[in-house]
Design a protein around this nucleic acid. Structure first.
Lengths: 354, 354
DNA sequence: TTGAAAGCGCTAACAT
DNA sequence: ATGTTAGCGCTTTCAA
């Protein structure tokens, strides 16, 4: 695989301009000094030859590639694609390019992605890590002093690594309080973290090293407790991370226990749960109130439109990239953590119980 | 911005192993010959020191960065995010990484993105170009012999550049024929290409240098013509590229002209048009049949579920990347064009007219 | 089999 | 102000 046929280098420009390589380099880089005459000749020559700097060569010397790696489960998901867009925009605005890695939440794939991107000498990493006990390559990155900012989640083993995330607890609390304030008492939650109900009650000290799903469940518990409503485990509907499981969980719960409101803690679960609602004979919001997660396109399309917790996805990506860049550039005291607020968008799917 | 503190290079490994730089290089690259003893010592040393090759240095020499650029309007869109995922997977499978550029369909932004990525010495480009008369930087790329594969669209000025796209005409034809076969005669279409109705009738010679929206309109015309149904301009609803415009177009048309079926030629227009339908008193599919574009999440959530034209987004991205890689590697005769078939998914929103 | 040396395209002292 | 030189980390002749 030979090099491109006609690559014009700085040497070619220098020759064409009749100056030394370093003179050409100086005017092309706009650094150092050069006589107006030289500048002119070099610029003309560069123009004439169609000179384009080789960023790789520059990177070799400076040790800086002006490239960020962003390692996430899946760009094709509505959440992460918006995040990537935000990160990408922020990166470009600061003169960085973005190298993309998908992990499918698989430990080994993540490890491979990180290693390859490392070899490409990226200046830093944005990682939405596979949530496991073993932090794997992410730890290696941090230990080798490569700038890393975590996105959306952080396991205990990475507690020392900066994080940009949404305040999942507060978001969840707001959603449930909205229902409580409307007058609901029997509020069910669909969660993939139900297994940890007991541990969760222990303490919330290191809440920021819990999975987002756990944090969201925590917010639910918080809200109930704050309003003196006892937690009924029968209303904590456990679901796997797929729509159909959520649908089934809701269907089953509706048969065995009466409740007037349902809160879903994730976009996929929201979709599944709503699928059941739409096919049931429940009439929203009179007989039943529904709160979803993430402001998906369909939530305003269905009738009644769905009240949701809206995560600032784009801003999340942008903030993460900006924090990473600040760390790369070692700008002052970069805060180590940043929590963005989600927003509760109240629509017609929630109302006071009848 | 100094180089990372402790970067262990091939020289370090060589020293540690007590061999020359070139010997170390040989075993590390697995090329050339080295005695078993040397191999062992070098590998041990590399392991001990935690050696990681510098892909940039390699790229400088080989002239190959094993990196692809993918330049699209917006990763945050459902269509392109899936495409990117497909391209990314195919690229990784072939040992390439992916550098991402968003253009927002803006000429200048596209130009800047392409230039920067070029300087990073990517081996090739996937571009979903801003559809304009002036091909700009894309032309420059091609003229400089940098491998490019176009994605989804190709203007006349780039007619000589390979393209991977969906067969928009056939897709559209299938959708409309489905309606015709159900017995519909008065079939409206929502399109952003209505202005070109007259030119379109001219000829379809260079159909692959028309905008996708034009091609889809063409498929509609084809289907009608093939079944001897005259085209009624009043049923070609012109819309800007936004949901609300589509909504308004449909609302207006329903007041002035009777028709029993509606076909939307794009996901955004589909959303807008459906918004009106859902708020109207039309009962689907009895009184009215509806065909949307792109299999969006909500199309199976609403009742009746929506019949749609489903584009193979992921495969589109994967095929594009694979074609680009084949060209980069100059593998045999790489086909210059590739059209994937979209699939009509018939659901409950279409039925015979009553 | 191994090592010495040149060089990819560029930057950055250091002289002049 | 300009040129010479060394060198980033690696590969690749070319000798030995």
């Amino acid at each position: 695989m030979a090099r491109r046929a006609h690559t014009v280098t700085i040497v070619d420009v220098a020759r064409e301009a009749g100056v030394s390589k370093s003179s050409a380099a100086r005017v092309l880089a706009g650094r150092g000094s050069a006589s107006p005459a030289t500048q002119q000749r070099v610029q003309d020559a560069a123009e004439r030859l169609g000179y384009r700097p080789n960023a790789l060569a520059k990177a070799m010397i400076s040790g800086t590639s002006n490239t960020l790696a962003i390692v996430i489960p899946d760009v094709a998901s509505p959440f992460f694609s918006a995040v990537v867009r935000g990160a990408s925009d922020a990166a470009h605005a600061a003169g960085f390019e973005v190298l993309l890695g998908n992990t499918d939440n698989d430990r080994d794939i993540q490890a491979r992605a990180i290693d390859v991107l490392r070899e490409k000498q990226v200046d830093g990493f944005i990682v939405a890590p596979v949530f496991e006990d073993d932090p794997g390559s992410v730890r290696a990155l941090v230990d080798d002093d490569i700038p890393v900012v975590l996105l959306d989640r952080r396991m205990p083993a990475l507690a020392d690594v900066p994080l940009v995330s949404v305040d999942h607890i507060a978001a969840s609390r707001a959603a449930v309080e909205h229902l409580i304030e409307l007058g609901h008492h029997d509020i069910a939650i669909v969660t993939e973290a139900a297994g940890s109900l007991d541990e969760l009650r222990g303490g919330t000290d290191d809440a920021h090293t819990l999975r987002p799903s756990h944090q969201r469940l925590l917010g639910y518990l918080d809200a109930l407790q704050a309003h003196g409503i006892p937690v009924d485990p029968a209303l904590v509907l456990s679901s796997a991370y797929d729509a159909d499981s959520a649908r089934a969980a809701v269907a089953e719960a509706l048969q065995s226990r009466r409740f007037t409101a349902l809160y879903c803690t994730d976009s996929v679960l929201t979709l599944g749960a709503y699928t059941h609602i739409v096919d049931s004979d429940l009439s929203l919001p009179g007989a039943f109130s529904f709160v979803g997660f993430d402001d998906q396109e369909w939530t305003t399309l269905v009738r009644p439109a769905v009240t949701v917790v809206d995560q600032p996805r784009y801003r999340l990506g942008a903030a993460t990239a900006n924090m990473l860049i600040a760390r790369i550039r070692r700008i002052g005291e970069v805060p180590s953590d940043m929590l963005l607020d989600a927003q509760l968008i109240t629509r017609a799917s929630t109302s006071r119980p009848v």
